[in-house]
């Protein structure tokens, strides 16, 4: 399982990180973001790739859990 820390990274790089991560671990990834724009962009990308998403709040940050 790939874990990605995309906090503080400007767009579109969180999406690029998600893309790289699912190539390494197609079964699913956890990706941590710190703003809604990154959350929405990463979510849109992962949904288009056929993943199911769950969200967990970690203080100010959001953990996106993507699974096939």
């Amino acid at each position: 399982m790939e874990k990605v820390d995309a906090r503080g990274i400007s767009c579109p790089q969180p999406v690029l990180m998600a893309k790289n991560a699912i190539e390494k671990s197609p079964e699913g990834i956890d990706i941590l973001v710190d703003n809604n724009t990154a959350k929405n962009n990463v979510s849109r990308f992962l949904k288009n790739q056929g993943y199911k998403l769950e969200y967990e709040n970690e203080g100010e940050d959001i953990l996106i859990k993507a699974r096939k």
């Binding site: 790939e2 874990k3 990274i9 790089q13 690029l16 990180m17 790289n20 991560a21 390494k24």
Partner: peptide, 9 residues
Amino acid sequence: EKSPIKASN
């Protein structure tokens, strides 16, 4: 330079 994009743990 190490990029945060490619670096994974």
